[in-house]
Design a protein around this nucleic acid. Sequence first.
DNA 1: CCGACTTTGTGCACACGTTCACAAGCGCTA
DNA 2: TAGCGCTTGTGAACGTGTGCACAAAGTCGG
Lengths: 251, 251
Amino acid sequence: MGARRGEDVEVVTAPGRLPGNDEPAVRERARAIPEAAVARLAVYLRVLSGLAEQDVTTISSEELSAAAGVNSAKLRKDLSYIGSYGTRGVGYEVEVLVDQIERILGLTRKHSVCVVGIGNLGHALANYAGFPGRGFPVSALFDVDDDLIGVPVGGILVSHVDDIPRVCAEREVSIGVIATPPPAAQGVCDRLVSAGVQCILNFAPVVLQVPDHVEVRKVDLAVEMQILSFHVARRADEAANADESGMVVPG
Amino acid sequence: MGARRGEDVEVVTAPGRLPGNDEPAVRERARAIPEAAVARLAVYLRVLSGLAEQDVTTISSEELSAAAGVNSAKLRKDLSYIGSYGTRGVGYEVEVLVDQIERILGLTRKHSVCVVGIGNLGHALANYAGFPGRGFPVSALFDVDDDLIGVPVGGILVSHVDDIPRVCAEREVSIGVIATPPPAAQGVCDRLVSAGVQCILNFAPVVLQVPDHVEVRKVDLAVEMQILSFHVARRADEAANADESGMVVPG
DNA sequence: CCGACTTTGTGCACACGTTCACAAGCGCTA
DNA sequence: TAGCGCTTGTGAACGTGTGCACAAAGTCGG
């Protein structure tokens, strides 16, 4: 176990009978998993699911880490956050890992998703979102365009954004996906928040302001492109640099 | 942020007096900017562009950081990576910052982009990609479906994936966007790489294997959803925990 | 039953990124 | 020109995440 702050170290033998402290530490553990590790666990899960379908029953950290594109030590540390489910000298049982990762990621429950903004991207998401992580049924779609209201997209009828509070409550939406034009995003976000949605995936290129208890993740195409652009530029500069400094091309 | 390959280690602190190291440090600096800072610079740039359009000429780190949703010290440090363009006691000139960030991000050149896989998502990207970061013209589209070849999407004719090498070379594509089904992604990736594309934005939920000199960023919807799911689960557990431990609801 | 071999789980050290806190620097006013 | 108040730029402390290397713990063959 990694040394945390002085506080939650005594989890070992659970000394003092403090109220609410006798929990199996599984829940405490969940809080301690680094976000980066969570992201990787999701990747491992996908790889493992693929292996399970190919009837692979056991895999070593070395093999799995190669398939997931990470260092094997990191993989083992990531897995250690969720418990000790490997067998030394052997490896991990694929099925066990799948189950445990799904448990930690909360994939044993279904998470109802809504998509707001049924443009090009929203369309794609409505058709796409339910399928890859099989625990995310899209259960509501919203737009402002009157021509779209009531139209079925991917099997779901589009509702008006004004109905977000009612529809989200009815269908117990827990994750909201924003795919609106930038100016509309904050307004939509506010409505989702007041509808009780606690997690938001934002595709609109704006910085959303939300209360502390709401989790926002953003997917920003422009930013991704610009990061790549930065690398292109860096490479070009390096090449120019190497050139100037009289580097000889081998061969 | 999110998971990247464990590779990007060679970004380390510029070591000692190696030959060709005496450059004006602008280029050296570029190498030293942390990836996380680059991502934020792109966000600042967008905010700043918005401000410029509203004829704001000057802004303090405090204001800008609030608009970008970060801490002001972090913002100043991020900006310090690209140089000292602020005036103490006053703030930053919006236009200067815009220019400098664009320079660092390599946005002064146009980066030709191709999209592979013209399904729902590819469609959305073809229409979307050029516009938000104004320096990214989509100049080629590819698919395997014969019915799509030659069809114009967002003003560009779709070519066959087999023509990737030729078309990418002709149109000087520097960034490849993969929006194919998972099984096709690695093959497409290989073709892009052999066509000389050095940066890839991958929307397919697979771990791509590429040579070291190729930069890959991935956007993985399923992973994002699962991270949110994790947070939903964590919250639920916390609530349950608080409940069990006999917490009294105030009021 | 033992010893050799394999692979996990993790303590430790290091690197990276974030935050704090303050000196340095600039403009404004008198 | 000197003094004051404001904001930048950054050294240094801190916390988090990564990677190494090895002990612990299991399997397997003899």
